[in-house]
Design a protein around this nucleic acid. Sequence first.
DNA 1: CATGAATGAGTATTCATTCAT
DNA 2: TATGAATGAATACTCATTCAT
Lengths: 183, 183, 183, 183
Amino acid sequence: MQVKKENKKEKIIKEAVKLFTKYGFEDVSVSSIAGEARIGKGTIYTYFKTKDDILEGCTKYVFNTFTSDIEKAADTNMEIAGFLDTLLDLFFVDMPSRSRILFLFHRKYYGTKRKDAKLTGRYKEMFRKVYERYKEEIKCPFEQMYLFLTGFMMTSYMIQANIDEEILKESVKEALKTLIVKT
Amino acid sequence: MQVKKENKKEKIIKEAVKLFTKYGFEDVSVSSIAGEARIGKGTIYTYFKTKDDILEGCTKYVFNTFTSDIEKAADTNMEIAGFLDTLLDLFFVDMPSRSRILFLFHRKYYGTKRKDAKLTGRYKEMFRKVYERYKEEIKCPFEQMYLFLTGFMMTSYMIQANIDEEILKESVKEALKTLIVKT
Amino acid sequence: MQVKKENKKEKIIKEAVKLFTKYGFEDVSVSSIAGEARIGKGTIYTYFKTKDDILEGCTKYVFNTFTSDIEKAADTNMEIAGFLDTLLDLFFVDMPSRSRILFLFHRKYYGTKRKDAKLTGRYKEMFRKVYERYKEEIKCPFEQMYLFLTGFMMTSYMIQANIDEEILKESVKEALKTLIVKT
Amino acid sequence: MQVKKENKKEKIIKEAVKLFTKYGFEDVSVSSIAGEARIGKGTIYTYFKTKDDILEGCTKYVFNTFTSDIEKAADTNMEIAGFLDTLLDLFFVDMPSRSRILFLFHRKYYGTKRKDAKLTGRYKEMFRKVYERYKEEIKCPFEQMYLFLTGFMMTSYMIQANIDEEILKESVKEALKTLIVKT
DNA sequence: CATGAATGAGTATTCATTCAT
DNA sequence: TATGAATGAATACTCATTCAT
């Protein structure tokens, strides 16, 4: 029973992510999410308190994928250059969709630090571990590395429409290495 | 009673920029814009066809300020390093507000290249002039310079809540110089 | 909470007919229909797509009453004279209201033959059956009979304000017999 | 100066008649009437108190054409049969347009006898003169003749979409002779 | 007299949320 | 737990009318 519940909640989030990505927050109705998830409209409210709560769920979900990306990249690379290559490759999978969710969330909770911390906590923490691990090879302080990585990742989404994805990814990889890795 | 036309349109845009920046697009009613601009609700529609049209007006306005920033920075600097310093200083004035408008517009017209070109045309063109002017000192191709500048500028907005503005600005300046200027 | 569907739709139509009859189409708000039907404004839209759709529903309803009037009159009369008497008696019940709806609909869809056919189809068909049945006694072609009957019925509505209803009805009965029945 | 004024008022009415005929009352804006009449929006209000007042002007105008039709038909015919032929021919000129105006007016002032009398007064009076003139040949009372003539004329408009105009006109002529003329 | 910029009252429609079943 | 019928708050936009010029 508990399992079933989790499955349903996850199903809702996955469909919501798809729809929010495609149409934005306001242009997606709770009904349509329910429709895509093949459940009744009212059922949504068994799992989420409000529509905003669904977006929060989506954001949490996205940050978890990011966090696991970082973990994977760190697990498979001994040196920071390889780590960055792997990380960017992972980040660019579903990048448009994931970035979109972050934008929506950011816009909604602009200034609300509490929510922000709750969601980005684990993500930032994971970055800190990585920083510690590759410390020797990094030439900038933690805050800057965090800024550069997060910034480029988010920006990529907005820029991508006007530039070939592969070129974009390589430019970003190169830029990050220039900014972060000791020479 | 027909003289002030341009003044009034500008007034509307300025108040709309303020409100959109603060509350986003959907959470600002046309009435409230009219209220802030101290004119009647109907008057808005003398100057703008729809609410979307107001956002477009705001975006055009913001791009014009960016374009004039670039122009100013180029006018007062013989070398690219100085140009970047001045440009970033100018970009960071009202940056949160201006970036916010661009986000809103971007989200609304995501994928609509036509609108995009109409508004970014002059902006990109101005960058191209700058690129030609400092060509000797720049180590990356135009597209990358454009990506790095626009990207960092927009990202700064999203990051700023979590970082001291002065540090952010200096980090960005430094990063850009590293990425763009020949050594 | 999902049983009463048909009842509720019918209730809405009945109240809409009353209001449209009294105030016309544009001067009746959807809210007021909801108010009279003692349901929420939004509920209207569970049963009708648009306000125009409500008018269409009313028209369909009215044509059904006309059709059933014709049926009744034919069922209870062996001869055309009696048929016309009965039919006119039935037509004059609620005649102002019913005619009014037809006017509104006619004005709205003036020229739109498709809608017209959809609604008048069964009505005209019923007239054709009647024509066949009383054929021997009728001296004019079908189209004329249809014109005279429909025409007088609708006209009666516009004229009635200036003339005693009983005299009007008798005049119409007499005129129709003169025009339609073989002597 | 007085002449100019009358010309302008007439111009407004003529354009309003065209527009009301085509689009109905609510779907014609005062602006569009002004536009068609090639004058400023505000100028309309020099000649008419309200939009309703324009419709009243149109109705008066239409009734005047009807009245003059009756006059013409009576002037050129010694016998009622010829009178009816001529009258119907004249009525059918611009019949759709003129009937439409009457419908609009009727709907607007349904029940308001005062307005009605003011506008139909001369028209009815003219009919009375005609009745007196052809009295010997007429078999029905005045009220019935008035009902039959006005009724058929108005109805023709609603029926016309579904029937050939020439057939319609001939049917009506014949019907009226049957109902009105002594044999 | 003529104008059209300014105004705000008025309304159809959407949709998050509730709750009886 | 699951549902979807019912609800009403909220909002963009239109247009008759006014009035300063």
